[in-house]
Design a protein around this nucleic acid. Structure first.
Lengths: 205, 205
DNA sequence: CTCGTATTTGAATCTCGATTCAACTAGCCT
DNA sequence: AGGCTAGTTGAATCGAGATTCAAATACGAG
């Protein structure tokens, strides 16, 4: 028999297992047995901890989203120059490539949000948090005089997050001429107009 | 017994029925019986025409996408002023509201595209066609001297389509402060920077 | 009008995943 | 050590939906 764990520990394991299973089989198409296998348990054990599967799936989505956001925050935390920060932030919001697991899951959620209010709320919250993140960067840059905002910071921030989202979908769908680098370039083209800053990526200065 | 139809006619009916069923039950969650009911037939009859259900679903998605695109083309076909045309085009790419059936289906597809190459291709094609549509408008406007493009037309066009897509998702997810009007405003804010044209919506001139 | 066949039905069957639950056991408590 | 209990198993059951197919029938051809 698999090693036993406390209820709390096991639930954390299961959230993780469900997350991995969803990435492989789709947010909505995932099966109980796939989650059980991913956790190294049987379906009965999963049900013991989560009699309602939907609850587990929601927690797993929530965790995945949190992870995505935290990683972005961490990546930019050490950067002080607003222009650099903006560039790195844009890059960190895009998938690494068509197989980026985290972003793929977010895309799946986007599709389900039309039918599922909980997912819709999760995504809306994530969107708003990302907007705030960008707003902070934009306003800091404006205060330091490196950005000259052509529009109010909320408008720019929303458009930046929107562009990120949309190009994420394109990359996941394997658009032949839009890869992560190209997407960064496209988004930066907007950011340059909006901030009045040339925003040269670090490796080209 | 339901009225009999020729193979070709019935297949058209079924594509339509599948489209309606997908809108109600989700692009991937839809069931054979739901399609049959929508078509006024039994499941056996559906299978008779489409032994492989996936083929029907793909054709239905294709049809839905075509319809979406054609409607946009029609809406802007009578407009000659490039600024007006741009504004109307932007509006026509957004859902009417959270329950807009056509756009909801497209959103579902976006989620599935990560796992399904056919859907990915369909969406990529749609994206590129929309980009071309915008490029034409932008370059016509530039040629007439009403637009002063801040970037090459492909960049602007791609960003416009991307913004449209992303705000479509937000609207479908019922973002509390982004409705179709607000989304148009946000996209126009970018379009103004990119075209150098004030782009006043018709009702405010 | 009648035959022949393409289309449709509906009931039987199949499939597969969810759900239940009695039995089993790992690990804690005393 | 021995018992207690929470966690886990696995086999049985359930159920929803897909699939099959013989029978029924609408409709066109001749």
């Amino acid at each position: 028999m698999t090693q036993r764990k406390s209820k709390a520990d096991r639930r954390l394991d299961l959230i993780d297992a469900a997350h991995r299973a969803m990435i492989q089989h789709g947010a909505e198409g995932v099966h109980l047995n796939q989650i059980a296998e991913e956790a190294g348990l049987t379906s009965g054990a999963v049900l013991y901890h989560y009699p309602d599967l939907r609850e587990l799936l929601i927690e797993a989505q929530h965790a995945g989203m949190e992870r995505f956001y935290e990683r972005r925050v961490k990546k930019i935390s050490g950067i002080s120059d607003p222009a650099d920060k903006l560039i790195v932030t844009i890059r960190s919001g895009l998938p690494d490539g068509p197989d980026d697991a985290g972003v793929r899951l977010l895309c799946e959620l986007g599709g389900a949000a039309g039918r599922n209010r909980v997912y819709a709320t999760l995504l809306t919250t994530l969107f708003d948090r990302q907007v705030s993140m960008y707003q902070t960067i934009l306003e800091t840059g404006a205060a330091h005089g490196v950005f000259t905002l052509a529009q109010d910071s909320e408008t720019i921030a929303r458009n930046l997050v929107a562009l990120e989202d949309a190009y994420g979908y394109r990359i996941i769908a394997r658009h032949h001429s839009i890869d992560p680098d190209k997407a960064v370039e496209l988004i930066l083209d907007y950011a340059r107009l909006a901030t009045g800053n040339p925003l040269r990526p670090a490796d080209r200065r």
